[in-house]
Design a protein around this nucleic acid. Sequence first.
DNA 1: CGGCGGCTTGAAGGACGTCAAGATTAGTGG
DNA 2: CCACTAATCTTGACGTCCTTCAAGCCGCCG
Lengths: 250, 250
Amino acid sequence: MRAPVRPPINPEGEGDAFTFCGTCAFAPVCLPGGYDKTALARLHMIIEHVGPFPAGTHAFRVGDPFTAVYAVRAGTVKTYVVDDEGREQVLGFHLPGELVGLNAIHPQRYPCNAVALDEVTLCRFSFSAMAALATQVPDLQAKLFDLLSADIARSAVLAGDYSADERIASFLLGLSERFAARGYSPRRFRLTMSRTDIANYLRLATETVSRVLQRFDHDGLVAVDRREIELVAPDRLKHLARRVMRIGPA
Amino acid sequence: MRAPVRPPINPEGEGDAFTFCGTCAFAPVCLPGGYDKTALARLHMIIEHVGPFPAGTHAFRVGDPFTAVYAVRAGTVKTYVVDDEGREQVLGFHLPGELVGLNAIHPQRYPCNAVALDEVTLCRFSFSAMAALATQVPDLQAKLFDLLSADIARSAVLAGDYSADERIASFLLGLSERFAARGYSPRRFRLTMSRTDIANYLRLATETVSRVLQRFDHDGLVAVDRREIELVAPDRLKHLARRVMRIGPA
DNA sequence: CGGCGGCTTGAAGGACGTCAAGATTAGTGG
DNA sequence: CCACTAATCTTGACGTCCTTCAAGCCGCCG
């Protein structure tokens, strides 16, 4: 059974746009301070708030024609591909405020699957409408260029030949930073993804992820309780991840 | 002595724009068929043809403020970073017609170094001018979105956990395709980069690159003579690279 | 010709994957 | 509320691909 390509519209409408969109990638363009009120209104015109969807729901799948970019409003979205040997490659985890689907612009088809890891709510942006609007709102165009450019750097980070320790340390710190940017605790958080997902994302075996987390716990770097994580010694983690971080925020 | 694969550079103005720019990333926007003649003229206004530069010349370095994107007109450009242990990470090789510097939009500083591997000529695009022009020329904006999106996919390819054989096979095939797209032989070509560069790009040891190329030669997949490469059995190479390619041109 | 960087070749070692089993936990139905 | 099952996670032993270390070889330029 295949989930609908275009999820149904959330009947609740725009009334809570500010509470939901405050941390969105488009916040600088959408929210007050963006002087052009009519541009703001037109951007809101092309947004559909969709969901919530239960875990396991797909927003799109490999090969679907590209029509829209999604912003995560709540929950976590995993993007991934499956190779011909049935092995899953996780491309990314997307937290509230982050975008999904920018890599589909070029091939005009989604090059990956996007699935909800927990209950997820999304904003759906028709890309053709947004591109048209961007020609009239330079700030929006600039924001899109910025987001695309940032995504290039992000995918480059994983390409390095880093050790399991480096990968996992930087993964935990990356999540921590992203949670902090959204107002959650950077010290304690809950992993919404399985060890297998983490392993497929970091290009490690699940056993390795398990072992390294165990060792980090034993060495007092973190406190691991199932999917509950506490960063006990963030500084030592940062030291471990220094080579990886060097590339990202250059 | 390098074989003259292409006529020597004429440092004059736009008179030979067509011969030089025919394979450029912006060709669809620049060249006839782009109905908007004035847009074409304005794009040419913001282009500076710079060079030629000898091998070893840097176009920009890590941390330089971002002002321009470069298109390679002739030669090969290597982008790379150096980590704190002095180890070089090659991010990409850029052939004529390809762009360099798009990943600098977000941080507003170049996150890597760009160096000429042989004699290189470039087109320099002031990015602020191009963004301004893009708001008035939707085709240019679309092309920029397209190029940025394609770059995301490109950096994702290297992120997979592929074997040395898979990496090298796909590297050779990738070069072959890009040469073909520019009118050169897809079967025989000359590597402009050293084994060390290839190794740092593919995240392998130089010894591994050497050994795999040697074995490919011995097995009749390729004929290697120093930096001269002939793809003897492209089909078998493609078979080796199938897992990598699955992700790229999805 | 002689030196130097790039390339090749061999041997040893390590980091991670694979295989196999066992331990927890979550989910389900009685 | 409690079995029972399936999924997830952990733990251990072993194998392997690639790196590292150490020479030796070539081609190139002074």
